[in-house]
Amino acid sequence: MILHILTTAPLSDAARQAEQAINPGDALLLIEEAVSAALQPDLDCWKQTDYPVFLLEEDLVARGFANAASHHRLATVDIEGFVQLTEQYEQSITWY
């Protein structure tokens, strides 16, 4: 089981490559620029049910998207939650 960490905008090359690699049971964590996905509740990644998707809270807050994320009921983790995800998933891959 892999934790995929995406650091770039939702429609970037890296985002599409992560999508090619992700398997049911994996998880996707959006950090840095990727948290702008919070503004787009219609993105495919929010609609699928194969794997959980999380937004990094600190990066959302910094960019002013925290309200958008809670309004759309998107799952967030803080930095400690990020560490917990890496405890839970044996492997991680960063897509940038």
């Binding site: 892999i2 090619q20 690699a21 992700i22 398997n23 994996d26 044996e90 492997q91 891959i93 960063t94 897509w95 940038y96």
Partner: peptide, 12 residues
């Protein structure tokens, strides 16, 4: 997808 479904070391 299968390449990513088995545990292995990966650099990206």
């Amino acid at each position: 997808k299968a390449l990513f479904s088995q545990p292995r070391l990966i650099f990206n």
